[in-house]
Amino acid sequence: MSLKAQLKKDFSTLTLALMAVAIVLNIVLGQVVSLLKLPIFLDSIGTVLVALLAGPWAGALTGLLTNLIWGLISDPVAAAFAPVALVIGLVAGLCAKARLFRQWWQAIISGAIITVALSIIAIPVRVYMFGGVTGSGADFLVAYLLATGRDLFSAVLITVITNNLIDKVATALLAWAIVKGLPKRFTARFSRASAVTG
């Protein structure tokens, strides 16, 4: 199928409605997590859901827009990480395409792959724009790593990966479970969902 036709198929009105809802899920599910006081954010779960149902481009756009919108309405800092969110959606969609989201253990592997991919973008943004710091407790790890003689770049690398690994694996697993649990009638409407539901 030509690129234009594929894009048109991927961005049908149904996909757009899905993406709008997913953006909201990204923003709102963080509340559940803080309720449970777990060390994860779940702020990309909508992005991964869209990637699984509608493909990497839709997933990427969902991530990008989530951060831009959050930057517009609450915290402009989030806008700086919009490229990171884009990569999450893109890679999740590519993993699904590569048949890496069919079983639960594959979802875990995909979560790890997503973590590595997002770090490639997140680390430079962190280091060059924010001096390697997030304003949260994770920075103590950066401080410790610097104290043990590492340079800023590798200190941030280790921190970003450890911070995100659990969250992205949990996100990937949850998204997988949700897609598996959706009624067949719903997933049949999305051309890419068959890569996950089989």
Binding site: L25, V28, L29, V32, V33, L35, L36, L38, L42, I45, A170, L174, A177, I178, G181
Partner: peptide, 8 residues
């Protein structure tokens, strides 16, 4: 986690 996230 799942019983709270999934229904939403």
């Amino acid at each position: 986690l799942f019983p709270l996230v999934a229904p939403l």
